[in-house]
Amino acid sequence: MAFFQMKKMILAWTFRTPVTTKYPFEPRKICPGSRGRLDIKISDCIFCSLCAKRCPTQALDVDKVNKKWHIDRLRCISCGYCVEVCPKKCLHLTGDHGIPTVTKDMETF
């Protein structure tokens, strides 16, 4: 039976700096390989709409006629399925998570 087992940890942490970051002032460190915001290299896209067909949340919309590619950022769950199926490999997930938004807009490329 031991009393106050926490003392070791408390003593050690009295002299250390906090492990938390001051978030809005200090940006979060981006982890390589993290699945974040979806990005497209529109010059490579052939508008085959495979990505839109496979997306599990219907976040994408491809306009074949006008050669436009739309994404609803709030719907995208960053699963990366579209990245896998794209025949031209023009989609990729960046490590960051984009900025907060107050409206539900489609982003167009």
Binding site: Q58, A59, D61, K104, M106, T108
Partner: peptide
């Protein structure tokens, strides 16, 4: 019941 993706411009 799955809504179609919102078209650009409509809110």
């Amino acid at each position: 019941p799955v809504p179609a993706p919102a078209k650009p411009g409509d809110q």
